[in-house]
Amino acid sequence: MSSSPDPRGELADAISIALDGRAVGGLTRLSGGASRETWRFEADGEPLILQRQRAGDTRDMEVEASVLRAAAAAGVPVPRLLASGRFDHGARYMIQSWVDGETIARKILRDDAFADARVSLVGQFASALAAVHSIPIDDVPGLPTTDQVAQYRQSLDDLNAQLEQSHPAFELAFRWLEANRPTSARRTVVHGDFRLGNVMVGPEGLRAVLDWELAHIGDPMEDLGWLCVRAWRFGSELPVAGVGRYEELLAGYSAATGSPADPEALLWWEVLGTLKWGIMCMLQASAHLLGFSRSHELAAIGRRVCENEYDILLALEGRWSSLGVS
């Protein structure tokens, strides 16, 4: 916390220094999550975005900045990175161009203004993901390489212990995932949270891929599977981000990468993504139950865990023979 009587003025001064003395005004806070704050402002009249990391966030924002630079170079539509580094008071920051458009999924899925966008988005998502996955790994040192199954196995064990719960459906899911791992040896940069809500969309379609803080190294199909998780359809019947069919995503991605995409691998990653979201629902409920953030909204999310159990059981109907006698 700053002791200055005008912390906003102090932040504006720090931004101005980061931008080689440009005149900074109109600082408006857009959001403040647990790990970072986002501000909108203008520098010499140009609308820009500042993201500032909070103390205690263990991720290195400079790694994210390097991913953004590499993504731009690989042809991914992203905001332009103007500056990144560390303010005098120690907080990491990134300054990016402001991209106009809509991020709210329900508006993109329902408003007439986005009718054309909805037709184009799956193809544009497939191309953008192919570009993300073409980033040379050596250009972005420092990205985590954790195995996703192991990571979420640990999360589930921790949460089950804290909340004194057990989830037989999730145990079935882990067994199936372990027994049916895709054979693909491809290891690429993975965005890690590619879905409506984290992309800027205009009436014509995709404008920018945002929110790279979960980027890591892994199987590129992870991004495609996550995009198909039912939570990210926001009530739509269409499986891919609520806007398209599996075949469109696979065909678009295969065309963009020049090699066929495996629908079985897509299913595997969708199941893992559904499991992840179920565990994240437990995590949100635990924030209420353990007293970090008392809220009936967080409490209610605890009862959404079973939506993910249900989706996993539907996705794997008739596929259990790999575990035992059927």
């Binding site: 259990w320 575990l323 035992g324």
Partner: peptide, 25 residues
């Protein structure tokens, strides 16, 4: 039940297990 699924102790009855888990869900 969760533990038996994890260790594979009920793998010889996997269809019964899945049906029971599904009914609970």
């Amino acid at each position: 039940l969760a533990s038996a699924i994890r260790t594979g102790a009920l793998d010889d009855r996997i269809d019964d297990v899945v049906a029971a888990v599904r009914a609970s869900v």
